[in-house]
Simulated assay, not measured.
Amino acid sequence: MHPKVYEAAKSGDFDSLITIISGNGEDLFHQTTPKENNILHLAAQYKQVNFIEHLLQSPSGPSLLWQSNYKGDTPLHVAAKVGSYRAVRMFIDLSKSLHWVVENGQADASKELLRKQNLHKDTVLHCAIRGGHDLVVELLIGEDPQLCDITNTADESPLYLAADRGLSCTIELILGVFSLSSSHKGPKGLTALHAGISLSLTSWEKIMEKRPEAIKEGDDLGWTPLHYVAYLGKVEAVRLLLQHDTSVAYDLDKAGESALHLTAYQGYVNVIVELIRSCPDAFDMINTKGQSALHAAVIGGRENVVKYILGMPNMEDLINEQDNDGNTALHFAALHKKYNIIYILAQDKRVDHLAKNKDHFTALDIFSAHNEDLMESRVFKVGLLNTVRRG
């Protein structure tokens, strides 16, 4: 691109551009930078709206609007990225005034421009959301609500992108659009509800209310939003989800784990309390390995969860639940060398210390096989022997 043309577009000096072109020919209108930006791209990038207005009124101006740079961005993409509301408005208004004749009739030039995707399949709406430009977002979805349905190469819908970036106002704008097919999808099977976990509960619930089907949708790991908030210990989010749909508490991920197993492994007693309050039979759940929440707590080394479960009445079946390999919680405490948990379990007279797994090993057999040092072995054996004597 001619240096003076570049400077004119960057500074917004349209008179200077005309002077340069008058002396050097119309071809200067169509020159581009190494990134294949034309003068309209440049003017949009630097928000030179007066320059843009004059340029679009010139005979060569409108054709520049459909040209793409090396990333596939049109000048409208660029204007949306930088949040130039006036430039976006002018580009849309110009496209509305144009009429394209195609093989099967007349095409809507404005919709064609708005829905044009770059090399990453981003529309102008993706660009505006990524930049956090709510006024431009509102303008774009007002002109074409179906922009909310288009996902990019990364499988990001506009709603997912807004949720992932924590943009509450943008989320409300998108959810306010009447579009039954409006997408909430994201990459790797994630949804806007997954991505919005870090949002305020008010904004998160709005997604839930408008897209209730997302509550039950799992990502590529099979994790629903409940799996995530339970794993992270977000008790209020857990409560909110269960108020909308308790059935999700019984869903297992692709590894066979429920939200209860995950939160027990992480040690969040308050989340366990909430899950049991909403789903009293949740402790009956076992994973695909036949393991209970108590097994998960022991594997995670969560003494607080073990104590909480032992403190509940009528839990004999759970306390001595054997997994598919016949291992009880006490077996796992021995397998994973959780000495404090071994002691806690050994003090509870309901724990069956003589239970054998499918290899016919008791917990003491497993511990002895570790060939631990004398002091650790003595602690374990004393605990179990005391249990035997009480029995």
Rank of each mutant, 00 (worst) to 15 (best):
P145S: 05
D108F: 08
G105E: 08
F380K: 00
S179W: 02
E236W: 11
L201I: 14
K307L: 05
S97I: 07
I286Y: 04
V351D: 07
F178P: 13
F51K: 11
I174L: 13
K206Q: 07
Q347D: 10
G72N: 07
N340D: 15
N270D: 15
T123Q: 05
M208G: 07
V306T: 05
F380Q: 06
Y339T: 15
D317F: 14
G83R: 08
W100L: 15
G12T: 13
K381F: 00
L330I: 09
V382N: 14
D164V: 12
Q106H: 12
L241F: 06
T123C: 02
A363M: 05
V379C: 06
S95F: 04
L140V: 00
V177G: 08
A109N: 07
L318D: 04
L114P: 04
I366C: 02
C127W: 09
F332S: 08
K356A: 10
D219S: 00
L125I: 03
H353G: 12
G300K: 07
S368W: 03
A293P: 11
R390G: 05
A162N: 11
A363E: 05
E7R: 09
V306M: 06
K121E: 11
A334W: 08
E112D: 07
E257W: 13
L114S: 09
L232K: 10
K210N: 12
I18P: 00
I299M: 14
P75Y: 07
S168M: 10
N314F: 12
E316M: 09
L318A: 05
E209A: 14
L374Q: 15
H295C: 10
H126T: 00
H353Q: 10
R211G: 13
V269C: 01
E274F: 06
T19Y: 05
A264G: 04
A282P: 07
L201A: 02
A369M: 11
N357D: 09
A9Y: 04
H2G: 07
H331F: 05
A9G: 00
I286W: 06
R277A: 03
L201Y: 12
S95T: 10
V305G: 01
A162T: 06
L28K: 01
S168Y: 12
L17Q: 06
I299Q: 13
N37Q: 11
V379S: 09
L260S: 01
L241I: 04
G233Q: 08
K4G: 03
I18C: 10
G83W: 08
A79Y: 03
G186Q: 02
R89D: 15
A107F: 01
V229F: 13
V379M: 13
G196E: 05
A44G: 09
L147M: 10
P187F: 00
R130K: 13
L354V: 04
L226G: 00
F367Y: 11
N371F: 09
S200P: 03
A237R: 12
E7S: 09
N340H: 15
E53P: 09
V306R: 03
D284I: 06
I52H: 01
G189A: 01
E217I: 14
A230S: 00
V78T: 05
Y265D: 06
K338I: 06
